[in-house]
């Protein structure tokens, strides 16, 4: 390839360092560099995405394509009368709010504690982050075994420390199953969010906190009036990230309860999956997945915005 030298007319008129408008010059070359990524991305992500959308307007049962009929918005109308669908939406919301609040609060508390020159801070951080690398399937099976009312260790442990009143069938009881899932969710990723907050805490200028201390602020006042307000954008980011993560829940529930008992832990992803694969309602299952996609998309846009705001605040 030959050396390029920018000698195009007009460039010199621009302020140095200003962004030059995209020109056609590299078009063909760009295509060569982009082609492999586009091949996989369009072939195996975008086409299934469009396919999901398309199938949601059909009543296909998933066998042969000649049975595929377009039914317009029928699947979406069907949702209105589907009690399990609404229960799933409700459970998704409960999960998002409960898990996001718990993760954020625990992550913030631990980040602040570890920020205060605690000994072994790195050790604790390493330990707290560890569950995030354990797969959700392993997490789900381990907790299913540990929580089992006949064989698990959780109930005997509660008995041993005098909390017998709390023992029970953690995953088999309709009232307990969803809160149990929330706890497992929190266990799995609170360390990730704590790590983000520790990074943000480290980004707060030391002089600000120093001067507050010199002015006689107590630790509580220092956090209340300086650290927390400056951390607010980061807390927002973590809260939304945690929420999106919990909204996307699938493996944990699939492994631990399959949405049961009697739909007590059913969420959009498990219900859509069941409809498409077990009940052969590929059309209806796809429509549920589309609702899930739209809601995830909306949450992600919110997150990108708040992230941008957080960055602007830092700048």
């Amino acid at each position: 390839m030959t050396t390029h030298i920018d000698v195009q007319p007009g460039i010199a008129l621009q302020r140095p360092g200003a962004r030059r408008p995209p020109q056609r010059r590299d078009g063909r070359l760009a295509l060569v560099f982009l082609a492999p990524a586009l091949f996989f991305y369009i072939g195996f992500l975008i086409i299934p995405l469009i396919g999901t959308l398309f199938l949601s307007f059909t009543d296909w049962e998933g066998f042969t394509f000649d049975q595929l009929r377009m039914t317009g918005l029928d699947n979406y109308r069907q949702m209105a009368g589907d009690d399990v669908f609404w229960a799933a939406v409700r459970h998704n919301l409960i999960l998002v709010v409960a898990a996001a609040v718990l993760k954020t609060v625990i992550a913030l508390a631990l980040a602040i504690i570890l920020d205060n020159n605690v000994r072994f801070a790195r050790f604790f951080q390493t330990v707290y982050l560890m569950p995030a690398v354990v797969s959700l399937v392993v997490t789900g099976v381990v907790f299913s075994l540990a929580l089992s009312p006949t064989l698990g260790f959780v109930n005997p442990l509660l008995d041993a420390i005098g909390l017998s009143s709390l023992t029970g069938d953690w995953l088999g009881d309709t009232g307990r199953a969803l809160p149990t899932i929330v706890v497992v969710e929190v266990w799995h990723t609170f360390g990730l969010h704590m790590t983000i907050l520790i990074a943000s805490l480290a980004g707060i200028p030391g002089e600000l906190r120093e001067s507050a201390r010199v002015d006689g602020a107590t630790t509580w006042q220092e956090y209340r009036h300086i650290v927390i307000p400056m951390l607010r954008p980061a807390i927002g980011v973590v809260f939304l990230l945690a929420g999106i993560e919990s909204f996307k829940i699938f493996a944990t529930i699939y492994v631990m309860t399959r949405g049961g008992p009697s739909h007590a832990t059913e969420v959009l992803s498990t219900w859509g999956f069941f409809q498409a694969f077990s009940a052969n309602n590929v059309g209806y299952g796809s429509a549920i997945m589309v609702v899930l996609l739209l809601l995830t998309f909306a949450l992600s846009v919110l997150q990108v915005r708040s992230n941008r705001r957080a960055q602007n605040d830092l700048a």
């Binding site: 992500l45 299934p48 699938f250 999956f273 694969f277 299952g285 796809s286 997945m289 995830t296």
Partner: peptide, 8 residues
């Protein structure tokens, strides 16, 4: 989310 695309 990957599980939303897995049917199609």
């Amino acid at each position: 989310p990957a599980h939303a695309l897995v049917v199609a």
